[in-house]
Design a protein around this nucleic acid. Structure first.
Lengths: 353, 353
DNA sequence: CTGTTAGCGCATTCAA
DNA sequence: TTGAATGCGCTAACAG
């Protein structure tokens, strides 16, 4: 019984099989023309030595590719994944990347994980969201010459972006309310910047760092120029309820609230319930995303369904094409209006006046 | 204006700075004793050439470490992350690994991603759940000599496991019901195996591949030897409702249902609502996990809170210790009983008899 | 404190 | 078809 060697390598195996390393390499790559007999010899030797394929680390140095794509989400994994939109996106990306044989390196923009971000081996990256850090991270990626695709923001510095058509979708939602007769509408935006204060005016919008929130708000104001806007700090039910109360617990509440996400909208529904405002009779509420909220609230939300997984898939495809040397164009996906049951004609509300 | 070079390397930088490569290496590693002047020269040259740190791929070959830890979840990312328990676990792991400078490679047991699983560079792995594939994946990891920590299953083949004390926690829950006077109890288990059929008997339990489900069921039967058990296929509200109906829509329904997860328990609550069985007056329901279900159901669940993030953190710490050559012991975490409001004395139920 | 040297394990030339 | 030789970019000895 031979003593177990340090660590079997291709060279070890080749020597044991009595062939050249290049031959053994071909066998494991399944590429070149190798005679069946030689192949078998190599395979046998490998089994004998307990060698199960070439070392990924050595391959990546040699090939200049590690087969890993970084997917960067905002803040901690737990808060990012509380939102089904992010989960869907990562899933879509993982699916396409997995089929292409690429791994998903889960990265966050958390400061304490910067070391990982800087040092991690990755051939390309998908950068999601538009946190204040995003710009800095993108800069770092560019310096390292890591091809990057953005998700949920505008294209920047040569990096293509995959996103939904926020202006069109948001306008459609606002116009839907307008056509229903609503004239006093308010909106709850996603985080616009790092500021915790809810009040949003034109100046703050102009300075906003979050493209998605800004675009959706702009579209809302296009339709309701005087509509009140308050910014949430997170896309959660709790935030929606908190901001919803601020919006609704006033002498003359709006007859419609446009929430920039479904989770926020559910929160607004709760605020309305707490204040005794019947939805949709006295208040219309719209969301954004099209996630399954049946577990959160029985009322089907009037919302725009966005193709979350498709965003991830398209981002992954784009990243893969960039690795092939192409310069893919940005992608703008369409959303689909979901009628739901939380928006109704404003007349009802007016009657209560 | 000089033309941009192919790709700046440490050697390039060192030459430009007029120092030895090893010196430049030390500068970027921030380790050795380098004079401030030399250091500056190197940094300047690097900036000049657009060199921003050593290539991770080359480092990993040289160091034999890629700084990446694989975290394997069951099935697709999307279905795994629909369950807050998994999200919490991954978050805990990401936190500890991130602080240690290690990246998280998100892996699944999906067959189409096997190539990634086999080829991905990783120094160690955290293997969660106990899908039928888990055993095979563990075998593959062992052959590659990738130190692995299991989460949510028993220790196997030399790999330590991090888990909660399912027998103790489940017994406590069952005994709580027993002491409340319940004698006719039933249970909804997590997936026990790949079989879709709900009915579970002792034989099926004996053949179960999912340790968690099996342990919790065993503990239930220890207290309620004749209690009916039906297996869910997933830990979701929908499954809980489906199985809940099977359990409750019978002539003599049980007075208590032990669900093996909170999501399943919420489903059971819905089934009870649909059948007009008041909880907790005529039916007691318990869950497991201690996730926040307030968004799903107003009634605070009687359940066991398990430290989800701690599981991830402990698994990550164990993996890190294994990378240091240690052989960490398995960890069994305690759960905490949460009284909630969905379990009450059986008397009430009996009175309706 | 700094320079020289020798591989890490592999994929790919180029010859035979 | 197969074999020998080269270097991917870096770090860690060691010697100055």
């Amino acid at each position: 019984m031979t003593e177990s060697r340090q660590h079997p390598t291709l060279a070890t195996v080749a020597r044991a099989a009595g062939v050249a390393v290049s031959t053994a390499s071909l066998v494991f790559a399944g590429k070149g023309p190798v005679s069946a007999a030689t192949k078998q010899k190599v395979l046998d030797a490998a089994t004998e030595l307990g060698f199960h394929g070439p070392d990924p680390r050595a391959r990546s140095l040699r090939n200049g590719r590690s087969g890993v794509v970084g997917v960067v989400v905002q803040t901690s994994v737990i808060s990012a994944f509380r939102d089904p939109v992010n989960v869907g996106m990562v899933d879509g990306a993982a699916e396409v990347l997995g089929e292409a044989g690429a791994g998903v390196l889960l990265l966050t923009d958390a400061p304490h994980a910067r070391r990982v971000f800087e040092d991690a081996p990755m051939d390309a990256a998908v950068l999601t969201g538009c946190s204040p850090w995003a710009t800095e991270l993108l800069g770092s990626l560019r310096r390292r010459r890591v091809p990057t695709v953005l998700v949920g923001s505008r294209p920047r510095r040569g990096s293509p972006a995959v996103d939904v058509d926020n202006p069109a979708a948001s306008r459609e939602l606002a116009q839907h309310l307008y056509r229903l007769g609503h004239r006093r509408a308010a909106t709850v935006t996603l985080a616009l910047d790092t500021d915790d204060a809810p009040a949003v005016d034109a100046d703050r919008l102009a300075a906003a760092t979050a493209d998605t929130a800004a675009e959706r708000l702009q579209a809302f104001w296009d339709v309701f120029p005087n509509g009140r806007a308050l910014a949430a700090t997170d896309s959660t039910v709790e935030e929606g309820e908190r901001i919803g109360r601020m919006l609704l617990d006033v002498p003359e509440p709006p007859t419609a609230v446009v929430a920039q996400s479904d989770l926020l909208a559910v929160g607004v529904l709760r605020a309305a319930d707490a204040l005794g405002l019947a939805v949709p009779d006295r208040l219309s509420v719209t969301g954004f995303d099209g996630i399954d909220t049946s577990a959160l609230d029985p009322r089907p939300l009037t919302t725009m369904r966005q193709p979350m997984q498709q965003k991830g898939r398209d981002a992954a495809s784009a990243v893969l094409r960039m690795l092939d040397g192409a310069r893919p164009r940005s992608v703008l996906l369409d959303c689909e209006f979901v009628p739901g049951a939380t928006a109704a004609p404003a007349d009802c509300a007016a009657q209560h006046h």
